[in-house]
């Protein structure tokens, strides 16, 4: 984990961040239990700074608050997110535990044939035009509701947030360079999200491209990974329900229609 990201926990806990920083850090919070615990503790610690000050508001304020309260509907409690799939129709992975740390190889499931298999798929027909991927790359700025001690309803969450918070979120992690890359997929939401602390800078003129492995269609472009060198959060373009895996290849910077190089990472959903 990038220590620089953790360092914002203090500033975040006391609201000493801009809206952009807040959004970005909340994405991190979704993945980092240490920071969640730290934020909670530091918020409580900060509160002691004013524990010696009590100032009763004017009595009229009490009446005003209570009058407003009597006319204000309370939010419904958060219901558990929708079940992964209808009862009885569970796919093989519907009940699967999120896969924890995976081996530090490009082949997630340890099958040495994976690279070859992907290579073989390159030539299959039926690949989705990669055009849509360009759009995905432009949608990096994930909006975010405030990450607060209260929750907002799922409908207010972006697709990325819904995926990250889904009960059936399947989390696959791989080391990459000095950093770690993560793919989170939710069948219930039907989307997947790619996250990296710091993507390695691709060679000049190249970019990392995401792919879904879709049965019967082969490798389908799921968008480009922005090459900022910083922390990245990208929703994968396309339906994550039917895909059995995802991969990353190095492609010309405008992307390719089919993978043209061996995968640098493969995530298996099954």
């Amino acid at each position: 984990m990038n220590p620089d990201t953790h360092a914002l926990a203090g500033a975040y806990a006391v609201n000493a961040v801009t809206d952009d920083e807040r959004r970005s850090f909340e994405t991190h919070l979704d993945l980092c239990a240490d920071c969640r615990a730290e934020v909670a503790e530091l918020r409580a610690a900060a509160a002691t700074l004013t524990s010696d000050v009590e100032l009763a508001p004017p009595p009229a304020l009490r009446a005003s608050v209570l009058a407003a309260v009597s006319q204000t509907r309370q939010l419904s409690p958060l219901e558990p997110p929708a079940a992964a799939s209808p009862p009885g129709s569970n796919g093989p992975d519907a009940a699967a535990e999120p896969l924890a740390s995976l081996p530090a190889t490009a082949s997630v499931d340890g099958s040495p044939a994976d690279g070859d298999e992907l290579a073989a798929r390159r030539n299959r027909r039926g690949l989705r035009p990669w055009l849509a991927a360009a759009v995905a790359a432009a949608v990096i700025t994930i909006g975010g509701v405030a990450w607060q001690p209260w929750e907002d309803s799922p409908s207010q969450l972006t697709a990325t947030e819904q995926v990250l918070r889904a009960d059936d979120a399947q989390r696959l992690e791989l080391p990459m360079g000095s950093s770690e890359i993560t793919l989170v997929r939710s069948r219930a939401v039907g989307r997947a999200v790619f996250l990296a602390d710091a993507m390695p800078t691709p060679p000049s003129g190249k970019a990392y491209q995401l792919w879904f492995d879709v049965p019967g269609r082969g490798m389908v472009s799921a968008g480009m990974i922005p090459t900022s060198g910083h922390a990245v959060t990208v929703p994968l373009e396309g339906d994550a329900r039917t895909a059995t895996g995802a991969g990353i290849t190095l492609e010309p910077e405008n992307g390719s229609e089919h993978p043209t190089s061996d995968p640098v990472a493969l995530f298996s959903f099954t």
Binding site: N15, A47, W150
Partner: peptide, 30 residues
């Protein structure tokens, strides 16, 4: 006043696992 109204509308979603009630309320007010 805004803070208390927020506390009223959101207390349905207060989760004690996420901090003490006072800490939660102070966070909203802050």
């Amino acid at each position: 006043q805004e803070a208390f109204l927020d506390i009223w509308t959101h207390c349905t979603r207060f989760d004690p696992a996420k901090g003490s009630p006072l800490s939660w309320m102070l966070t909203i007010a802050h």
